[in-house]
Every structure is written in C-alpha cells, then in structure tokens.
Simulated assay, not measured.
Amino acid sequence: MTWNLPNILTLLRLLAAPGMAVMFLYFTRPYADWFALVLFVTAAVTDWFDGYLARAWKQETRIGAMMDPIADKAMVVIALMIIVGYSAEHWTPWLVLPATVILFREVFVSGLREYLGDVAGTLKVTKLAKWKTTAQMIAIAVLFSQGIFEHYLGMTSWSVVWSGRIGLWLLWIAAALTLITGIDYLRKSLPHLKETR
C-alpha cells in the first residue's frame, strides 16, 4: 500500500466507521451522540479532501480507489444501524424504509462491483452518485444531532421535532437518489453480465 496523505485519510475514515459504534459502548448519551457526530462529520469532510488531494497531487492509487467507496459505505451503513437501533423507543417505518433502501442498494452494488471485477473500474462515478453520497451524509448528521437535541431539550421541543422531520425528509431524498443511482449502475452493468456461450 502506498502511504500518501490521501490514502491515510481514507484509511482513517474506514477506521472511524466502527469507531462510531464503539462510542456507544464506552460513553453514555448524549456524549456518545456527540462523539459519533464529530467522528461522522470529520470523516465526511475527509471524504472530499482525500479525493481532491489525490487528484491535485497526482497520487491516485488502486488501493485508494478500492478503499474509498468501502469507507463511504461503511460510514453510512454503521451510522444508519446506530440511528435505527437507538430510535427503537420511537420506532417508525418512515425511518426504517429509507434506511433499508440505502442498505440494500449499497450491498447490491458492492456485490455487483465484486462480480464485475476489473470492469467495475470502467464504470465511472456519476455526479448524481456524488450528490447521493452528500445527501446521505447530511441526512445522517442531522439525525445524529436529533439525539443530542432530545437529551438537552426534551422530546417535545420544537427543535427536536423539526430536526427529526428534516432528517427524515433528507433521508428520503438520499434514499431516492440512492435508488436512482443503483438502477443506473445496474443498467450500465447489464452488457457485462451477459453469459458468453
């Protein structure tokens, strides 16, 4: 592995993903929420920096290209797992359904990329896919902040209610973009999935 700064940032982001869950093992709420939110937001910011620096400094590597989407998916999947798990007391299908769409798409596309092997590298990441990742990150950050607001302000506070609603709306937007980009990726992959005789 090439130990340049972009790859180190990607690796740190990958390690931060399970780190969010560990926060809830060692700290009580709302401290766990604070630490998980800071970890998540910091990792989301490095997601932009590692790609930008790799291109600017001409330090793009195969290991970096492989680890980057894994780190993104790990961050999103683990964060959604935490949010759904800790929302059990006010569980709602309106939270679980978009989370399910996002998780299903990420697992499906990861499996598709693995099956396609080297061909997957030729399928370029679209601008819509980048917007999808941005929407996921913002929605998750807002939903994490709701847990913090709940602790300090109480469940009935208008800021808690509205942060929850805004977080849900953003998560649904992210889920819609996730579904669209997943279908687009499958459509572009179809010519490579045909069995040769």
Rank of each mutant, 00 (worst) to 15 (best):
Q136G: 01
L112T: 00
T133R: 00
A129K: 01
E60L: 14
P98Q: 01
T61A: 06
D68P: 05
A54R: 09
E89D: 14
V76Y: 00
A79C: 08
W57E: 14
P93V: 11
L123Q: 06
V125G: 03
Y115W: 10
I70M: 13
K58H: 15
L80F: 02
A129P: 02
P98K: 01
G85A: 10
L53F: 14
F104A: 10
I83K: 00
E60D: 11
K130S: 04
V84I: 14
V77Y: 04
K73Q: 07
L128S: 11
A120F: 06
V77S: 11
E114N: 05
I83L: 13
A141L: 05
T61F: 08
T61I: 11
Q136Y: 01
G117W: 09
L97S: 05
T100L: 14
I78G: 01
R62V: 15
R55C: 11
V77C: 08
K124N: 11
S87G: 13
A88W: 15
F108H: 04
I63C: 07
W91H: 11
V84H: 03
T92Y: 09
G117F: 11
T133L: 06
L128V: 13
E89L: 14
F108P: 00
I63F: 13
L53A: 09
L128E: 12
G85H: 12
F104G: 03
V84E: 09
T122Y: 10
F104N: 02
I82Q: 04
